[in-house]
Amino acid sequence: MSKRRPYVRPMAGWWRKNPFFIEYMIHEGTALFVAAYALVLLAGLVCLALGEAAWNGWLGAMKHPLVILFHLVTLAMIAYHSWTWFKIMPKTMPPVVIGGKRLSAAMITGGGLAAVALASLLALGLFWGMTR
């Protein structure tokens, strides 16, 4: 073994030293909440397939204060995902040229957020119509 001990820059907590990377880690971290919510829904699907008693058990679990708290945090994190998803979109999608001018970043982000509002209202309306 070599006796050399080259300097290795410490990397622990690297992202906490720069606000840009803190934001980056939070928006990447939203994936944990998307995964957790998908697993809650998946558990619901399995219970629904198992029958009425299992389904009512799942519904009851949704009412637990800690589960409500989890969903409050998840709502905030997934809403943040929506916001960053469309904020980054001008950089992640290919340029769109309309009438010889490139579609502006503000138009892409604004259009995306308008689509979120529209899809949310549509989902609320459909759910209300289907369950009343």
């Binding site: 589960v67 409500i68 469309f86 899809a119």
Partner: peptide, 18 residues
């Protein structure tokens, strides 16, 4: 998840249980 995630959490996780 960007389009429907927030409203789904609102419906299944908050509005209906509460």
């Amino acid at each position: 998840s960007a389009l429907l995630g927030p409203v789904l959490v609102l419906i299944t996780g908050l509005a209906v249980p509460m």
